[in-house]
Every structure is written in structure tokens, then in C-alpha cells.
Nucleic acid binder design. Structure first.
Lengths: 145, 145
DNA sequence: ATAACTGATACTATATTAATATCAGTTAAA
DNA sequence: TTTAACTGATATTAATATAGTATCAGTTAT
């Protein structure tokens, strides 16, 4: 079971580059080359990030995309939800047996507890926190321009 | 993001029926009808459970499958791993940047911590604990024969 | 005018998940 | 001893999700 799809993974990495270049427009080409993300795939993904209002774009020469939120307010949880849908353990494992009376379903509670734990953990991880970790380690994410 | 596939979900429900009928062979047909699981799909799944040594089978008329382990020792974690592979957040999110030096990858540690939390939670939930919960609620899982 | 860009959309490829079908062989019991 | 109720094994198809590619129109800095 893979928790993060490549798309989410790419989105995180693209946002890290943008966070390291905040205030500047960075082109899809630059991100693609810097992070080794397939260009056209990245382009689609960036448009989704625009719709999620995490970045803004500028068309034309010298255009590109720019982060439009505080990196500390962009959590991995948000990205997972944006690209993969909400974390759900199962629609309802016990449909026929119990779900006539959902409110009383103890198991559902168990399962929802796990969902909450996972969500809480992913909420703690933000683009900002990741970037700081990266900086601390090796300063590997360089300004892109 | 769905954590449990239908196959895992079906496996859990099949095992609940078998746990409620321990010591008896129950046919795939009976389980299929009782739990509303597509028959042939279930048959394949049961063969996997045999290979995982969680159940045993008896061929021929009056044959079927029977649980061969203490239900408290069959965890949802085992089932997820058996049917969906180990829970992995991502192969390695930061390949190019950091993975030259994996040992120092703080992020990887973060991510692995989440994996551990999820695994620990799923390990706590067993067929036995689920069955007891079900019994407590409504006694809905009836002996199948 | 032109090169460097994004917007929008359509398409293809691949992998995973879900479901179905078939035939051979085993066993209990009429 | 035949038959119906079973599992073993395996092949096939369908549906869905994920990943990646291609193309054309329009925008903007130089």
C-alpha cells in the first residue's frame, strides 16, 4: 500500500521549490528540470495547485508560477486530500451487518480513530516544516533562477 | 485515498464469519451469500488466506474452509500486508535531494513515524476484537450453517 | 516579431483492482 | 457407484486509477 501517489509526491517537491523561491515566478520547465518531474504531467499538476489556490501564475515570457500561501499553512494532508481524496479506511466495512444503525457502530469508531491519527500526523507536516528540514540537512533545495 | 481495498475488506468479513463458526467447515457459497461477496472473487481470496495459513480447507461435499488460528492473533495489519503489501508512505519522496545520504534524511524519519503509527493501530485491531465488538452490538454475525 | 511562457483539453499507456469463467479432482451420502 | 456439493488451479475480462504525452490557442517581455 502506497500512501502517497507520485502526483502528490511531485506536488510536494514542486511546492518546496516554489517555497524556496517565494516572491518569484518560476517556470514549469525550471521546476521540471530541477526536480526531475515529467514536464507535461507537472503542468497539469500546477494547474490543480492553482485551483487549490496554493499558487498563482503569470502568463507569457518570464512568467511561471509562484507560491501564494505561507508554506507553514500548506500541509501534506491538504495535498493528499487535494490529489487523492480524503483518507478513508473503508467506505463502511460492515454494511450489511451493522450499517442500518451507523451511530452504534463501534468498529466504525475504531476505524475513524485511525483516520484521525493519520490525518493529524499529516497535518503536522507542512511545506514550511519540510523546507526547514531540508535546509538544515544539506541546503539542497536551491533558488531555482 | 482508500486504505482498505475491497479484497481486504472481504477478507476481514469472511474471517469474521469463520471466527463465528470456528471448528466447522463453512463453504465459499455460504460465506459469499452471507456476506454478499462475489463468489469467484471470494474463492480466490480464500485460497490466499490458505496460503497465508490463516485458514484450512476440506475438499468435497460438506467441505469448505475453517479458521485455523486464534482470531485474536489475526490482525488487520497482517491482512493489509497480505493483500496490499506493506504500508509505505512513499518510496522516497526526496530521492534526488537527499537520498544520497539516507541515514541523515530527517523527513524519511517523519514519514516512517507515521507508518509506524498506522501499523500499530491496525495491529491492535484483530478478527477477535472485531467479532467481540460485533457481538456486543447486535449479535449480527450468526453461525453460518 | 518572436521566443518563452501558461490555459485548456484530449489522448495514450500502464498498473492495480475487481470480477468472471472453466475444468479437473475430491468427498459425503443417497 | 453415481451424483451433487465442494475445493484447487488457472485463465480471462472488465473497470478504475495512475502516470505520462501531445497539441493548439493565447499572453507577455524583450
Amino acid at each position: 500500500m502506497k500512501v502517497l501517489t507520485k502526483k502528490t509526491d511531485y506536488a510536494i517537491r514542486a511546492l518546496l521549490t516554489l517555497a524556496a523561491n517565494s516572491g518569484r515566478y518560476v517556470s514549469a520547465k525550471t521546476i521540471s528540470e530541477g526536480q526531475d518531474i515529467p514536464y507535461q504531467f507537472l503542468r497539469g499538476l500546477l494547474q490543480e495547485l492553482i485551483r487549490l489556490e496554493l499558487i498563482v501564475s503569470k502568463e507569457g515570457s518570464q512568467g511561471g508560477v509562484m507560491i501564494s500561501r505561507n508554506p507553514d499553512e500548506i500541509s501534506v494532508k491538504q495535498l493528499i486530500e487535494g490529489f487523492q481524496g480524503k483518507v478513508q479506511v473503508s467506505e463502511c466495512m460492515f454494511r450489511r451487518q451493522i450499517c442500518a444503525n451507523r451511530a452504534k457502530c463501534v468498529l466504525r469508531h475504531e476505524i475513524m480513530r485511525i483516520e484521525q491519527v493519520v490525518n493529524a500526523e499529516f497535518e503536522k507536516i507542512t511545506i514550511g516544516s519540510l523546507l526547514r528540514n531540508l535546509d538544515a540537512i544539506q541546503g539542497h533545495i536551491q533558488p531555482a533562477v
